[in-house]
């Protein structure tokens, strides 16, 4: 089976004033191409740290991560940035839209960075697909939370990534808006055949993924064997 993402003996320890603090310990997992995986866990269980390591935003203290067949441990920050540019998309809990840019420009930005000549056209198309055709010229503060997350989803998919990391995508939204956003996320994911790694503490959302892993105290609770399989 071809894996999009593999992690082995992954661990993260940080040094604090009170001594070393282990956030993640001995994480082993793999995600097949096109698969969707939910990582659940309570606040402070290390979900976001794990996402950061898997997506190459941060470096582990121990273990290794392979993304799209590339060992991230062998790369420097520049190399990891190239991998992210080529393969990865993100949806964040706090949307991470640039407040000074319109909805359209927020979606155009990653396309412009890779020199896409049709950035404007593609961004418009994706915003239309998330139902914001009438809101292209609006700035983030002028949009509701749900609308802002739709812009973030359009931005993530517009780059047509191989793998999408979603960090609590509905964490800042009410349940009804959250539901709509989830439908959108999974719908687009299915259409594009993107691999999805979803971090959430909502069981209902996690259940929509093909597979779920639970993180507690920095360790995976569901048998790692199954996760690796």
């Amino acid at each position: 089976m071809a894996y999009m993402l593999q992690a082995a003996q992954l661990g993260k320890t940080v040094t604090t004033a009170a001594g070393d603090l282990t956030i993640l310990k001995d994480i082993n997992l793999s995600v097949a191409k096109g698969e969707s995986l939910a990582i659940t866990g309570a606040s402070g269980s290390g979900k976001s740290t794990l996402l950061g390591l898997l997506a190459g935003l941060d470096v582990p203290t121990t273990g290794r991560v392979e993304l799209a067949g590339i060992n991230l441990g062998e790369l420097d920050e520049e190399g990891r940035a190239r991998v992210r540019a080529e393969h990865v998309g993100f949806v964040f809990q706090s949307f991470q839209l640039l407040p000074g840019l319109t909805a359209l420009e927020n979606v155009m930005l990653p396309l412009e960075l890779v020199g896409d000549a049709k950035a404007r056209q593609r961004a418009s198309e994706y915003l239309e697909r998330v139902g914001l055709a009438a809101r292209l010229g609006h700035y983030p503060p002028q949009l509701s939370g749900g609308e802002q997350q739709r812009v973030a989803i359009a931005r993530a998919f517009a780059c047509e990534p191989d793998i999408l990391f979603a960090d609590e995508p509905t964490g800042n939204l009410d349940s009804s808006t959250g539901h709509t956003i989830n439908d959108l996320l999974f719908g687009l994911n299915e259409e594009a055949g993107t691999t999805l790694v979803l971090i959430t503490h909502e069981e209902r959302l996690a259940n929509r993924c093909a597979r779920q892993l639970q993180l507690a105290g920095g360790e995976l609770m569901i048998a790692s064997a199954e996760a690796i399989a």
Binding site: E77, R84, A85, F90, Q96, L98
Partner: peptide
Amino acid sequence: NQVALLKSLGTSAG
């Protein structure tokens, strides 16, 4: 935050 976002989108420091 903008720089962090650009980097997460794969833009290199250079």
